[in-house]
Simulated scan of single mutants.
Amino acid sequence: MKVLYLGDVVGRPGRDIVIERLPEIRSRLALDFVVVNGENSAGGFGMTEKIAEEFFAAGIDCIVLGNHSFDQKEIMPVLERDGRILRPANYPKDTPGRGIGAFRTHRGKTILVVQLMGRLFMDPLDDPFALMEQQLAANPLGRKYDFILVDVHAEATSEKMAMGQFCDGRVSMVVGSHTHVPTADAQILPQGTAYQTDAGMCGDYNSVIGMDKEEPLRRFIRKIPAGRLTAASGPGTACGVYVETDDKTGLATYISPLRVGSRLAEIWPATE
């Protein structure tokens, strides 16, 4: 299978670059499935139903969220009824929505998407490792599902790396989100799981992690907030992670970053 994960979409620049370039990306890479993190897509804070509809219309198959899942209150009933949108699975039991989604591609392949949120420097949610162990026991790769993707929405690189090693050989892909900076460690782990610590963001990189520079700079320099954080408005760059797997085992055979846009150097996977 050929699967693309696009990192955190921040504001309009992130939405525009994803919606504009995704048809070309899907065609050029002959993608089976596309996942995007949409938790910052509404001005940097949460996601609306309208934005979700725009993503699906552009060719996104699944949207994952994160710690900003509920910043836009209108999304709560949408999470209840639309299984294509996932919030972290280790939220408390009665939290609206779901964190695990099962999908079938246009070629009839099955894919399981799991989103987890880390606990280091984040909200103290349920144990993501215990939850993941339960899922792996119930959903063996290569038997019940052809591809298993795990999004680890976490602050600490160590926690993301630990989850990658924990899942190695048992899922197709573990990718980190949340920190908005693409890491240079795309690799296939020893037992065959594709891994990258953070996919980066889809947004304006002439910013402070997607936000207009002035207010974050004031907060760092003076330690006094002077206004609201707002998404930067310059041209966007889309960053993500592309993975190919063996159809028999579901394990990775190839991983590459994907970067398209105006600021960061473009990187296209070598698919030929």
Rank of each mutant, 00 (worst) to 15 (best):
L189T: 10
D247L: 15
D168P: 08
R15P: 04
A231Y: 00
P96S: 08
I111C: 13
A199W: 00
A30C: 02
D198N: 12
Q191L: 15
F121V: 02
L31P: 08
I188S: 13
Q134R: 14
P235N: 11
I100K: 12
I19P: 04
H178F: 06
G44E: 01
M122C: 13
P190A: 14
I51A: 02
Q165L: 13
G176V: 09
E49P: 05
D185S: 12
G118H: 05
F166H: 12
I267G: 00
P77I: 06
D94L: 12
G169T: 10
T253R: 12
D16F: 07
P88M: 11
G38Q: 08
Y242E: 14
L86F: 10
F70S: 04
T157H: 01
P88T: 09
D146V: 01
H106I: 13
L258R: 02
P269E: 07
R87I: 06
K248V: 15
T193I: 10
A186L: 11
R81S: 15
G7M: 03
G43K: 02
Q72M: 06
F220D: 04
A57H: 08
A154L: 12
D212R: 00
K144L: 15
T48C: 02
G46T: 00
Q135C: 11
T110F: 06
M173N: 06
H106W: 11
A184E: 15
M163D: 10
G99H: 12
D16I: 08
D246P: 01
A265C: 01
L251I: 03
E49Q: 14
D123S: 14
P269V: 07
C202V: 03
S262K: 09
D247S: 14
P23L: 12
M201C: 08
T237H: 06
Q134L: 13
R263S: 11
P23K: 07
L141E: 06
F70E: 03
V114C: 14
A238E: 11
D204G: 00
F55N: 03
A137M: 14
D247M: 09
S177N: 14
L120P: 00
T230F: 03
P140L: 11
T230K: 14
D61Y: 13
G210R: 00
I25V: 15
D204V: 00
M1G: 10
M173W: 07
E159G: 08
R107M: 09
A30G: 10
R170Y: 09
T271D: 04
G176K: 00
L258D: 07
S207V: 03
L136Y: 10
V152P: 02
L251K: 11
A138C: 03
D8Y: 04
S172P: 06
R84T: 05
E214C: 01
A265I: 10
I60G: 02
T271W: 06
V150C: 11
V150R: 05
Q115H: 04
G240H: 04
V208A: 10
V152F: 01
R218W: 08
E133A: 15
D146T: 01
V36M: 07
A42S: 10
M132A: 12
T245I: 13
L31G: 08
M1D: 05
E39N: 04
K73W: 00
G38H: 07
V260A: 04
M132H: 12
F45D: 00
G200S: 02
D212L: 01
I25Q: 05
F33R: 01
Y5V: 13
G66Q: 09
V113H: 01
